[in-house]
C-alpha cells in the first residue's frame, strides 16, 4: 500500500486500484469506556454522596457535565467511523464514503471521469474532486494539501492507464 499520509493510503491488487482514507483516531474502545465510566463513577459517586447528606444540587450539575462528556465521546466515535474509499476496477470507478451522518455510494464510468484539483483559492485547502456527467464528488477530506495533490496525480495516472 502506497502511503499518502498517515490518514490515507492507496493499494493496487490484481489490476484494481483502491484508495482508502480515514481520520486519525487514537482512542480505543477500551480507553473510551474506561475514561467515560471512571468519570461517571467519580462524578456521580461524589454527587450522590452529597445528595444523601441533603445537598442535592450537586447532582444535576454532575448530570449535565457527564451529558456533555458523553456527547463529546459520541462525536469522536462518529468521526472514527468516517471513511472514503475510491476503487478503480476495469471500466468502473466506485466512490464510497461516510462523513458524519452522511454516507453514500456512487458508481461512475471510467471513460467519463476526470479529476480536478484546485489550489488557487488563498486561505482554503486544495479542492480535489472527481467529475462525471455534470456531477462533482469531493475526495480527500482527511488529507493535507500535499497529500491531495499527490492523490490527484495518482488518480489521473490510474484513470489514463
Amino acid at each position: 500500500m502506497e502511503q499518502l499520509n498517515a490518514n490515507g493510503g492507496a493499494q493496487i491488487t490484481a489490476g484494481a486500484f483502491s484508495f482508502h482514507s480515514r481520520p486519525c483516531c487514537s482512542l480505543t474502545c477500551t480507553q473510551e469506556r474506561v475514561t467515560f465510566w471512571s468519570l461517571v463513577l467519580l462524578c456521580f459517586g461524589v454527587a450522590i454522596g452529597f445528595t444523601v447528606q441533603g445537598y442535592w444540587l450537586v447532582l444535576p450539575f454532575a448530570g449535565l457535565e457527564i451529558g456533555l462528556l458523553a456527547w463529546a465521546l459520541e462525536s469522536l466515535r462518529n468521526r472514527e467511523n468516517n471513511y472514503e474509499i475510491l476503487t478503480i476496477d476495469g471500466d468502473s470507478v466506485v466512490l464510497e464514503w461516510r462523513i458524519g451522518k452522511q454516507s453514500g455510494r456512487r458508481e461512475l464510468n471510467r471513460q467519463w471521469v476526470h479529476v480536478q484539483c484546485d489550489c488557487s483559492t488563498p486561505g482554503r485547502n486544495c479542492h480535489l474532486c472527481v467529475r462525471s456527467h455534470g456531477l462533482e464528488t469531493e475526495v480527500g477530506h482527511f488529507l493535507s494539501d500535499e497529500a491531495r495533490l499527490k492523490l490527484a496525480a495518482v488518480l489521473k495516472m490510474q484513470l489514463q492507464g
Binding site: 475510491l86 453514500g104 456531477l135 480527500g140
Partner: peptide
C-alpha cells in the same frame, strides 16, 4: 468524500 451539493 461527498457530493458537491453536500455541505463541506
Amino acid at each position: 468524500m461527498s457530493d458537491a451539493a453536500h455541505a463541506h
